[in-house]
Design a protein around this nucleic acid. Structure first.
Lengths: 135, 135
DNA sequence: GATTAATGCAACAGCAATTGTTACATTAAT
DNA sequence: ATTAATGTAACAATTGCTGTTGCATTAATC
């Protein structure tokens, strides 16, 4: 795997699980499919569990399952669960001294926040079920 | 500066230059304003020049200037010039063996491309001139 | 022509984030 | 008791970006 693989891994895994929502899968199975390591899978899926998208069971015969129907999981849910904030405004420390600069800085920051917000809205229009499609 | 600072630096610089489009600025001046290094500035602005957004002149009294009016530079221009592709689908090498997996993989990739495309369309609606606003 | 002041570019160190990996505690079914 | 799973900590390796130095090139100015 390379870069930005958390989102990719999450989407692939959720889409895959959407094919048989009741089936419980182990992190080892998922890692095999994704070509990575079970610990990496548990790391990423752990975030999705915290966000209420997945459930996990410990112990013998444990594993991972969707916490809701794939129709009720949007790409925005996944994006927010991973806390990626792809469109960040750089450093938060960078506070310009000049007041004109400061005003401009805030304006750029505001624009970038708007952009991210509309990205999230767009992501909210697509569900995992739709990603998977019909097969 | 921290992370994702290329986009931030580019937007701040372009917005700043929009305030006096005819003025030629050196990378040292810009670096001072942005709190970074002239070489870093030239690196990022070099990409904007390749995309036709800026012109640079070498030699004594050289520097950087907008190549077009700020009304004619959109956020999409900047985004594409930097070749960020924030919404990448991870590795391109990751080609699943199973054909069902392969189909799913392509579908996830396709969805992410769609998302990125609509992000670009959204970015295309805002110009540098609008970012700067009126002051 | 020499000087000065700029970009362009290469090389490298440092840093931060991510990934991959090992190891082990905990938990629950068999 | 055994087995098989998650949860988590620790660490190495990798990657990408930033910051920095150094220098070649270029063009205006003296």
């Amino acid at each position: 795997m390379k870069r930005n693989s958390r989102l990719s891994l999450a989407l692939h895994t959720l889409s895959h699980m959407a094919g048989d929502p009741e089936r419980v899968r182990t992190s080892a199975d998922i890692a095999d499919h994704a070509g990575t390591n079970p610990v990496v899978v548990r790391r990423v899926l752990g975030r999705l569990r915290e966000a209420g998208l997945l459930n996990s069971e410990k112990g013998h015969a444990g594993g991972w399952k969707l916490a809701r129907s794939p129709q009720e999981i949007t790409l925005a849910d996944v994006y927010l669960a991973l806390d990626e904030s792809l469109i960040s405004t750089g450093s938060d420390e960078e506070v310009p001294s000049c007041s004109v600069e400061h005003a401009l800085h805030r304006r750029v920051t505001g624009v970038m926040k708007d952009i991210e917000q509309s990205l999230i809205e767009r992501l909210n229009e697509t569900t995992i079920s739709e990603v998977r499609g019909t097969e």
